[in-house]
């Protein structure tokens, strides 16, 4: 199967969708503490972008980052174990939902400081290419992040030094409860264009559209081009964070949510498959997630005596806090 295989793209969006639904169940069951920022509704963006990348390419994700990590190829079982705070998790239970990282598949981490990851990824891609590695990067961020100065500084550095980083703005219309129109002067694409970057605004609900736009940008970047920006118009179907399941916040008209939910990336991609193929993928995803849940819940919690392990890569040990 090739990367453009519609089945493969469907498998990714379906996996993310069901992963998030299972994760929410585990939040409700008290197995995932601290809640999550569900990626529901935005699956087409991570799936489409990562389908156009190679395994060795690098990505950074966001606080709403499960989709990015899964789409880049992390093991769903170890990802779920991470959310449950188990030693078998991707980060050995040290990162959780907002910091899941898998350097082995090129995920330099979900990052919970809005707007912060773009500069990190730019430096990483620059350093790898300087060593002669043919890699490009994609850094995901929300519409809220475009008002963080450090991200705009990263736009400039990447463009100035022609570092092949795809800046992927997931414009889901809101930063928590703040609508884009109340926060962004000018346009998101216009900001990248001001640094001389090619930009494209696409329908983020269609995984194929996102993949095609990304593939075109990545091809230009691999041929020596500088950074580009893709603005994917999308919508989050669920809460900003699962705390909203308990505390209702009034900021999106119900009709708006209902209308947006009709453009569902999982259904859009699923409809492109013969029914039998689709059912086979669904069953496969379900089996994968059943196994993932079993694996996560059966995994041991980390030993409190190891709480400061990995604080220093140099082997330095920190004083503990007791009297």
């Amino acid at each position: 199967m090739t990367d453009s295989d519609p089945v493969r793209l469907y498998r990714t969006v379906r996996l993310i969708r069901r992963f998030e639904e299972r994760a929410i169940e585990l939040v409700d069951a008290g197995e995932i503490v601290g809640g999550i920022h569900p990626y529901l509704g935005q699956e087409g963006v991570a799936a489409g972008v990562c389908a156009a990348l190679r395994p060795g390419d690098l990505v950074t994700g966001t606080h709403r980052g499960h989709g990015h990590v899964l789409a880049k190829g992390a093991d769903p079982a170890r990802m779920l174990a991470e959310l449950c705070g188990r030693v078998t998790g991707l980060n050995r239970g040290r990162g959780g939902s907002m910091h899941a990282a898998d350097f082995g598949v090129g995920v330099l981490g979900a990052n919970a400081i809005v707007g912060a990851a773009g500069a990190i990824l730019t430096g990483a891609v620059w350093a790898r290419r300087r060593r002669g590695d043919d890699v490009v990067g994609a850094t995901f961020f929300g519409d809220g992040a475009v008002n963080e100065g450090m991200l705009l500084e990263a736009f400039n550095l990447a463009a100035l030094w022609r570092v092949p980083v795809l800046f992927v703005c997931e414009n889901n219309g809101y930063a928590t409860t703040m609508p884009v129109d109340g926060a962004v002067a000018g346009t998101i694409a216009g900001r990248a264009a001001a640094f001389g970057m090619p930009t494209v605004t696409v329908d983020g609900q269609d995984p194929e559209t996102v993949r095609e736009a990304t593939a075109a940008a990545v091809a230009r970047m691999r041929a020596g081009g500088g950074p580009e920006l893709v603005e994917a118009r999308t919508y989050r179907f669920d809460a900003h964070h699962t705390f909203e399941h308990r505390v209702r916040l009034d900021y999106r008209p119900p009709e708006e949510v209902a209308a947006a939910r009709r453009r569902d990336p999982v259904l859009i991609q699923g409809d492109r498959l013969p029914a039998a193929d689709r059912a086979a993928v669904d069953a496969e995803v379900e089996a994968t997630l059943d196994a993932a849940v079993d694996f996560a819940l059966a995994s041991p919690a980390p030993d409190p005596a190891t709480a400061l392990d990995h604080l220093y890569a140099s082997g330095l040990t920190a004083r503990t806090g007791g009297g």
Binding site: F103, L108, A119, I120, G123, V125, W126, L157
Partner: peptide
């Protein structure tokens, strides 16, 4: 661009 180049260095360090 102190903020960007400081994190650029972080990224470069992550990449070896």
């Amino acid at each position: 661009s102190e903020q960007a180049f400081t994190s650029f260095a972080t990224g470069a360090a992550l990449a070896g």
